[in-house]
Design a protein around this nucleic acid. Sequence first.
DNA 1: CAAATAGGTCACTAGGTCAC
DNA 2: GTGACCTAGTGACCTATTTG
Lengths: 581, 581
Amino acid sequence: MESTEVGSVITYICSSSSASSPESCHSDSSNGSDQSSSPSHGSPSVHLHLDQQSDPTFEAAWQNLPGTEKTGRFSSAAKCGITKINGLVLLCKVCGDVASGFHYGVHACEGCKGFFRRSIQQNIHYKKCLKNGTCPIMRINRNRCQQCRLRKCLMVGMSRDSVRFGRIPKREKQRMLLEMQNAMNNIINNGQLNSQLQSSQMLPAALSLPINSTESTSEQVGYAASSSPCSSVSDTNSDPEPAMKMDTSPSSASPCASDSGEEEGIGSGTKAHITTPMNKQEQITLSADSTVTTGSLDNGVDQNVADDQRDDIQDAWNCQNNMASKSTPVSLGPKSYEDKIANHSTSRLFPSTVGQSQGTLRILSSVHEVQSGHWLRDGRRMYLGCPMNTAPNIDSQKSGHEVWDEFMHSFTPAVREVVEFAKKIPGFRDLSQHDQVNLLKAGTFEVLVVRFASLFDAKERTVTFLGGKKYSVDTLRSMGASEFLNSMFDFSEKLTNLGLSEEEMSLFTAVVLVSADRSGIENVNSVEALQDTLICALRNLITKNHPNELATFTKLLLKLPDLRSLNNMHSEQLLAFKIHS
Amino acid sequence: MESTEVGSVITYICSSSSASSPESCHSDSSNGSDQSSSPSHGSPSVHLHLDQQSDPTFEAAWQNLPGTEKTGRFSSAAKCGITKINGLVLLCKVCGDVASGFHYGVHACEGCKGFFRRSIQQNIHYKKCLKNGTCPIMRINRNRCQQCRLRKCLMVGMSRDSVRFGRIPKREKQRMLLEMQNAMNNIINNGQLNSQLQSSQMLPAALSLPINSTESTSEQVGYAASSSPCSSVSDTNSDPEPAMKMDTSPSSASPCASDSGEEEGIGSGTKAHITTPMNKQEQITLSADSTVTTGSLDNGVDQNVADDQRDDIQDAWNCQNNMASKSTPVSLGPKSYEDKIANHSTSRLFPSTVGQSQGTLRILSSVHEVQSGHWLRDGRRMYLGCPMNTAPNIDSQKSGHEVWDEFMHSFTPAVREVVEFAKKIPGFRDLSQHDQVNLLKAGTFEVLVVRFASLFDAKERTVTFLGGKKYSVDTLRSMGASEFLNSMFDFSEKLTNLGLSEEEMSLFTAVVLVSADRSGIENVNSVEALQDTLICALRNLITKNHPNELATFTKLLLKLPDLRSLNNMHSEQLLAFKIHS
DNA sequence: CAAATAGGTCACTAGGTCAC
DNA sequence: GTGACCTAGTGACCTATTTG
């Protein structure tokens, strides 16, 4: 059921380099192997990765695509078990695995093809599903419930009657191409579609998209998933009020108050205030509020904040990801926050010096590509692995699309908040754009961890999801990433135990961001200077508020390396989930 | 994380003996029925026994292999529950028994497979381990502690999500085979089998092997590559004097002096003193020191240090790597520090949940495996990428073996020193062995970075290698890893600029070690308590020595996240170099 | 013919069984 | 409970067949 829906989304993966996958190619048809989904069913849901190798026929259409440079390496593409259209790797409509072709009327992988064949050939009646026939069918669990798998096969349109033999008619190919182009265009030009894409891209989305998370009523806000589709919002330039309250009011003491006078406080100008849900109540409030907030979602696009820098940052980001996004809208897709994080580790893992021609290498890089493109179909996967999500997939009976939608809504605002928050940190905007972007790229996750620390209840061993539901660690653990979870709990517990006030937390958060990994920073000295200022302010603030200031301050600083480790674990976890398809 | 480490080892076990289990062969495919590979995750750790029966195709290639005597026992190999690749019997990643296949994402024996299945099917909660959850899991004792066995299963990556059905892709098989052949060839052709293996194991080597780094004349020392092959050294139990001076003399002020009296100093008992080359002179001094010390190396196997715990740690390590090393000497090889570090990132990258059966996945996993197997032939690669080496390979005209030998000699002492240093940190040995080992595994690199910071001359942009030669950044950069290099320079510069005294440096180093990544730590509270004590001592010391103590102290703490990032970059760099083959 | 797919094959594994 | 065996599947490859 859901894969398809998801399917409504097109997953374009930019494989700049190579062919994505792997495997042994054995089908000669390389390029244009597309096949569309002629069949009514699902064509729209073209799951695919953008692969460089493309069919000359369509080449023109895509030539502008970033990362489509042809290396010629796999141009043959021939004999690949992978089905591509124009470099777009198609995914199995049943389970999301890489499709090997158009089987029984649907793009499917070898596994689902074989399964369906056996099922109909022998007219097998599988034993009843134990879960009411609601099992999600994904690559990793497709073998757990045959009944549901078969149901899914039928649902997405597999049928003996839909078999298509022989070469793909040019017409169909053409049609398919058009369809894809339209989809692409929509993504590019349409504010809405965006919502889907953007959400998937997290950060960029946050940067360029208005969240209808709407203004925050008073305190906690918007993190809760707003189920209202943001599709209605088309104004990409509008700058909605950040879901997180960026308090500039006097109510929040200047974080940089430097009473001790040792160093000067940070500029008295703007002050960034990040509202963090520290207590249980607030936690709950959070959800409640968001709901409230949600009410005004659609209309609440906040145009007030003139955001001169937003675009710049977005651009910078694009540059970083070197996707030539501007010219090729499609590229927007892959440039996701998620990607960012993943690339984080990925890029380090496969530095330029590496991803060469070697077999192993090539494969790895291709995986990289693939993965980067998986944001869509892997949303689910990420969803599975990220406790920050609105709800674990376990109890989800929603369609993949709904789940995805929720997921995206739950995160976009938060990420955007981080960006907004950063921009209000005195001195942050004085850094070069390049450095601002890099700090955000490296530090957004860490900031979010700090901010959501209270959602992890170490005593009860539960995690309150952004949607307001609580889940036990065991439940979550069953979804994997247990080590990461443990670390998150440990961190959250320690941080919470410090009992920081909101302003202290805000200032600490600023320090976290400015302390992000320095690799890639142009002007390290500037960043360091800013960090010094912030740290000084933090120390002063804590000194003022806490009796045993030093200990608290020190402990706070010691949280930085922990955050760094969590960040790394998360990157790897993400990559894992992405790859795990 | 560690699961991998485990894996990282390639165990070539002479099947003749082992064969613990085997027996009933039932799979028809006898010979070539290997499976290898693929596996992702863990595979690297291709644990295998060399089995005689092998695929005729490859037979020739391996016939010379040591331990390949044919017993004929498994010659039939047909219908064996044993998984082989080319005659190499794969071992269970959980207990070391002979693997019957790739179960739940990991090569496992029938026993562990069944155990894991029952555990997850019935969601059994085993009763708590009586030994703190530190039970080593080996074939002979795997049934003694269910909790630990399950933990180990999870640790090595077993997961329902990692199931792989169907046949193993040819490519992967092929690749795996090649890897193994290379490794084997290296082992076989290279006389210094041991030296290679050992060096490749770094830490273990350091722990168990006497270094013949020979005496150093007066200046540069010990770390300097001693070209003498250590193969001659057979006394594994000898305990050479650590090259780094572990000063217990009063000369070095107690690092934990707590004048301020805010907190108690660390126990007045043992004091760890690490001599760090901060200035050029000292740099030399360092060498001198070590030299001096080194003088007693060959003969001076320092037996004084009654090292009761050393073996324990070694054992723990072995256990961790669960290679049944004891019985099979060869297995010792792969358990390397290098591997450790690499696995660090590797394992995180390809967690159990990941390495699936799917194409994309599978490939990744195989890469993972492959890489793990690279410890040997990649030694060179690491060499290339690590500026800490005695000399960059650029000017090296030596044979690969010599280079490798040098490399290993240059590092072994340093790593050993870290271990020795750790043991002298007041309170460190009070931690559980498991935690001691994990802290060392996670923190050794960071400690070395701190210690060698002065070797990076930011102003001149040169790096003084352990052999005493200086190289310009540009020269080094040409070998890749420039980002990493830059970060190393940045870090070193900042650290050096703080102008810390030796004792401050030592204490800081202790803090670094105890602040290592906590994931995988059993008793976080103990570690934290120790850290608190050390930090307090550090603060007091700095407060005493520096006017602007707070700033210095704060800056020092801010170095911790930087170190963490460097550590991660290094892991990735290592992995990259390894993969880059 | 070349391009593509249905179906066949069989290397492989999850789970079930049942003697210990 | 454990783990050697067995069975029902699973899915990577390959071949036969269809179609442009």
